[in-house]
Nucleic acid binder design. Structure first.
Lengths: 331, 331
DNA sequence: CTGTTAGCGCATTCAG
DNA sequence: CTGAATGCGCTAACAG
C-alpha cells in the first residue's frame, strides 16, 4: 500500500494525499481530506519512513550508546534520554558496546548511515590513547555529517559534554565521612584508565587531604560488582587496620559489602562502606548504602537536548549530592 | 557524498560502485575494486541506509518494546535481545511504554513505518479486554505487514510467545519453603490484571495446597518496589500471625524487606521473605533473597530468534529454578 | 487549492 | 565483466 494507492482510491493526486496524511503546510479542502483519510484507512496505509526520510533527507531517529544496558547506571541515564526523545517524537536506536571501542565506532558509523538526527554516548572510555584517537576521529566525522552529538561522562571529545561532578562529589563525601568520625580509609578504585573512576578516587583523596588524612590503601578493580567483591577481598587479605572503605560506584560497593559479609566483617560496626551514584535499585540494600547521588535521568535528558540542539560544543556539569545512610553510621 | 560521486571519481558506473561497496554478488575486477574503494575512502562515503532500504525494500532494524528499561527485569531481557541482534548485525530500536497500551500501539505502528524486520514485546499487559483487543489488532497488522514478532510473558497474541514457567516455578518455591518448615504464608501479589503476577500467585497457592496449606493473607500491590513496600505495610497493619511472605517479584520483595526493617521485623528470624526473577543486581542484598531464577537473557535471545525466523506462531516455555538463600533460612 | 514532475540515493534487471 | 536505465515511496518545488 503506497501513497499512490491511497491517492487513486481517493481520486486525488499523490501530492494532495501526501499533504493531508503527512505534510503539515497547505491543507486541502475538508472534503478531500475526508476522502483521503478514508481511503488511507480502508487500505491500511502506513507511510514508508525510509522513503520519507529519503525524500526530505532527514530522519527522526536518534542513537544511544551505552556500555551495558543491564548496568543500572546506564539504564538510568538511557531512561532519561529515551523520555526526552519520546517527548519530541523521536525514535531511539540503542546499542551496548561492552566498552569495546571498535563496536562503538562501528555503531556510530551505522548511525551515520541511518542519517540519525543525533546521538548520545554514555559512559567514559578507557584512556587508551590510540583507540581514543580513533573514537575522536569518528566523532568528528559524525558531527561533520550534520548530526548532533552529546557525551555523558566523557570529556575531551569535540562535542557537547555532560559531566557529573565526580571530583567534588567524592571530595564532599570524604569530608562528610571525616566529619562523622571515620579516619582510616581505603579506596576501592576502578580501572585507572577510566576517567570517571579516577576522578572519584582523586576527589576523595583530595577531600581527605583537606583534613590532613590520606588513604591507608587504594585497591584497583573492575568497575563492576565482581570488581568490588574482588577488590574488597584483596584489601582484607592485605590490610586490616581500616575504618571505612569507599568504592567508586554503588555496584562495586555492594559487591564489596558481600565480600565483607563473607569474611564476617560487620558493616558499619567494624567497617564503614560508601559508594557513588545512588542507584535506585540499590536503595533498599541493608545497611543502607551511603553514596553520592547523581541526577542520572536529568543528565540523560539534557544530553539529548544538547545533541538535538547542536551548535557549539559546550560542557555542562551536574552537581552530585552526598547521601548519608546506615552503612557509614559511625560507632 | 553519494554513490554517484564515488563512481565518478573512480571512473566507473554507479552499478559497479554499488557492487564493490555493498552488493555481495558479482564482484568486479580487482583493479576496479581498488579504485572504487579508494574513491569511497577519500570522499568519506557512507551509504545511505534509507536509500538502500528503499531500493531493496527491506531493513536490518528490529524493535524492542519494554515497559520500563530502568526496571532490571526488562533490562536483563532486553540485553539478551540486543546481544542476539548484534550477532546478526541488526540495529535495535527501543522504546519504553510505561504500560500504556496507546504508546505501545503507536510504537508498533512506528516500527511498521520503519519497515522493521521484526520486533520483540517484553512483559505482560494488563488484562483490560478493550485495550488488549486493540493491541491484538495492531499485532496482527504488524504481522501482516510481513515483519516478525515475538512476545515475552504475554500469551494470547497471534505471534511467537516466550513464556516463563511462572506457575510451576512459584509452586516449586512453595514446596521448597514448606519443606524448610515454613507454614503461615502471605502473598504480596501484584495487580490482578497482570497475568505474570497472577500466575505466580496462583502457582504459589497451588503449591501450598499440595501440602494442605493455604495462604493466611494475599495482599495486592503495584508490581514495583514501592508496591512491595506498601503491600508489606498493609500486611503488618492487618495481620501479624505470619511465617513467611512471598512477593511475586524480586523488586517487590526488596521493597517489602525495607518495610519490614522499618517496622523492626527481623528477616528471616521473625519472617521469611522470598521473591521471583533472581535479578542480578539484587543478588547482594542482605539477607540474601530466596527467589526463583529465570533465564532472562536467554529468553530475550530466543525471542529475537523466533521473531526473525517468522513462521507459525509457537510458544516456548522456559523453566524456572528455585534459589534458596538466607532470607528464608528457617529457624 | 490541486496536480505534475523531478529528484532523494541506491539496487537491480537487462543489454552490451 | 560492466554500464544504462528503471523503480523503491515520498516530498517539494513548480505549474495550472
Amino acid at each position: 500500500m503506497t501513497l499512490l494507492d491511497v491517492a487513486q482510491r481517493a481520486g486525488v493526486s499523490v501530492a494532495t494525499a501526501s499533504r493531508v496524511l503527512n505534510g503539515g503546510d497547505r491543507v486541502p479542502r475538508p472534503e478531500l481530506q475526508e476522502r483521503v483519510k478514508a481511503a488511507a484507512d480502508e487500505l491500511g496505509y502506513t507511510p514508508n519512513a525510509q522513503a520519507q526520510a529519503l525524500a526530505k533527507s532527514s530522519t527522526n531517529v536518534v542513537g544511544i550508546l551505552v556500555h551495558d544496558i543491564e548496568d543500572p547506571y546506564f539504564a538510568a541515564i538511557a531512561n532519561g534520554v529515551m523520555r526526552a526523545a519520546d517527548e519530541r517524537n523521536l525514535l531511539v536506536m540503542m546499542a551496548s558496546t561492552f566498552r569495546d571501542s571498535d563496536r562503538e565506532i562501528a555503531y556510530l558509523s551505522s548511525l551515520r548511515a541511518q542519517r540519525a538526527r543525533a546521538a548520545v554516548m554514555i559512559g567514559s572510555r578507557r584512556t587508551d590513547a590510540e583507540s581514543l584517537a580513533r573514537t575522536a576521529t569518528e566523532v568528528e566525522t559524525f558531527l561533520n555529517s550534520g548530526a548532533g552529538l552529546a557525551l555523558v561522562s566523557q570529556s575531551g571529545m569535540p562535542a557537547h559534554t555532560i559531566e557529573p561532578d565526580n571530583r567534588s562529589g567524592a571530595a564532599e563525601l570524604a569530608r562528610s565521612l571525616v566529619g562523622l568520625g571515620w579516619r582510616k580509609f581505603a579506596v576501592l578504585a576502578g580501572p585507572d584508565a577510566l576517567a570517571t573512576a579516577r576522578d572519584r578516587r582523586d576527589g576523595f583523596v583530595a577531600g581527605l587531604a583537606e583534613a590532613g588524612l590520606q588513604p591507608v590503601a587504594v585497591e584497583a578493580g573492575e568497575f563492576t560488582r565482581d570488581g568490588g567483591y574482588a577488590a574488597a577481598q584483596g584489601l582484607l587479605d592485605r590490610k586490616t587496620d581500616l575504618d571505612c572503605v569507599f568504592a567508586v560506584n554503588d555496584v562495586m560497593a555492594v559487591g564489596a559489602m558481600s565480600a565483607l559479609r563473607a569474611r564476617g566483617v560487620d558493616v558499619p560496626r567494624e567497617l564503614g562502606v560508601a559508594g557513588f551514584d545512588d542507584i535506585a535499585t540499590l536503595r533498599d540494600v541493608w545497611p543502607g548504602l551511603t553514596t553520592v547521588r547523581l541526577p542520572l535521568e536529568q543528565m540523560g535528558r539534557r544530553a539529548l537536548e544538547l545533541a538535538i540542539e547542536g551548535g557549539e560544543a559546550t560542557t555542562e556539569t551536574f552537581k552530585a549530592e552526598v547521601v548519608l545512610r546506615e552503612s557509614t553510621a559511625h560507632r
